[in-house]
Design a protein around this nucleic acid. Structure first.
Lengths: 220, 220
DNA sequence: CACTATTTCTATAACTCTATAGATTATCTC
DNA sequence: GAGATAATCTATAGAGTTATAGAAATAGTG
């Protein structure tokens, strides 16, 4: 019987469910991989199925529709990604170290073949508005946390007083997405170096400077 | 006679050519607009034609193929964009001012409904390798110029000596693309403010600092 | 205005794509 | 190993796509 939505309503065994979930995850990964290289509209369900090693029609045993697949990929991306971020935000850490840790997670997750994240960034716009909104809600939690981090930095005097924390948080996200995409394309790029450079650029820009905290007193 | 490649081989009149070229440009704009919102694969030739106010088939009087349309859009984007940049690079200007001018051109061109630039950034990957390479060559001229600017800044002592100019140039491009896309989406975002903030972030980051060169006695 | 060249339209061939249905094979449970 | 359940396969309906050909309309010219 075909019951793609809930294939195990009265599942006596658990084994089958496990199997199903495992393959489902693989299907999401396959979709992520194909969407990442061909784009949502450029990819066909046949591409995804082939990548997974099954026939086109069989894919619908795991997804209600192609759109659902995209949705799942985006959600998976955020789940994984935000999970890692949450851990960091919770840990007490000096400001600069925390910033560096966040950038590390962001960029490393790209390298770790997390094609889903790339898909989320580049393809989620092709979802209908309502589904996009849901993602936005999830994503903005992260943005807010990041903003809070900068606000904390300002309060502690580490960051300049007139800093626009909202702008800075978004810019950091943009920068990380740019380098993240680059990292996933150019495999011989040095991850660690990029992390350090992004941190440095965000913190101190490219200007010559003298750190104010060492001795000088703060301004008005 | 249908001769979509060169529709005016022995054109006695010039008028007709002018007309053709005008409509052709409009076709490129229409393609840019549709590609920008729906993506290359998500957009159909019918969408583009409708946007232009003609029938689907008629579009082929101006483009050999849909792919050609994308190619044209990307080239147009770079032409316009790089033209503006070249002017700035050529003019003698103090470093910070020049940087600000570049960021201004980059971001303003997004606001100026230059959907082509967005398409270039987000959709050019769907072109076949050879056509992509051609674009890369053009684009990297700009990257190189930008890098040169930073190198000059380092030499003059304005920028820190150990600056990775290649990384910084790319990061600035990434930052501008991020905010450019944002500006074209969120119409009520203040362009001038974003320009200033991008400049400031690139130059000095978000850290507290004392400018080493100007004797800033910014204290109250 | 009549004639020509340019531009647009209509119709369509030849695909490709999504999603579904029913048959078939693999796997699990007792 | 038999019977039941789950997973996959094949085939296909139905819609949509690109690109082309020839007809129709529009604009330009002497």
């Amino acid at each position: 019987m075909n019951q793609s939505v809930t294939p195990n309503i009265h599942s006596s065994s658990t084994q089958s469910t496990v199997r199903y979930q495992r393959q489902r995850e693989k299907a999401i990964e396959a979709a992520a991989s194909v969407f990442a290289t061909k784009g949502y509209h450029g990819a066909s369900t046949k591409d995804i199925a082939t990548h997974l090693g099954i026939c086109q029609g069989s894919l619908y045993y795991y997804f209600k529709s192609k759109e659902t697949a995209l949705e799942e990929v985006c959600h998976a991306a955020l789940r994984n990604y935000l999970g890692g971020m949450d851990d960091i935000f919770r840990q007490p850490m000096p400001f600069e170290e925390k910033l560096s840790a966040i950038i590390t997670v962001h960029l490393a997750s790209y390298r770790a073949k997390n094609e889903a994240l790339k898909v989320h960034n580049e393809q989620r716009l092709y979802l209908p508005k309502q589904k996009r909104e849901k993602l936005k809600t999830l994503g903005s939690a992260y943005r807010k946390q990041l903003e809070e981090l900068f606000i904390g930095g300002v309060k502690s005097g580490k960051l300049k007083a007139n800093l626009d924390c909202h702008f800075t948080a978004l810019s950091l996200i943009g920068l990380c997405n740019y380098w993240g995409a680059m990292l996933s394309r150019e495999q011989d790029l040095n991850l660690k170096q990029v992390i350090e450079q992004c941190t440095e650029l965000t913190l101190r820009g490219c200007h010559t400077y003298v750190d104010q905290l060492t001795n000088t007193t703060a301004t008005s």
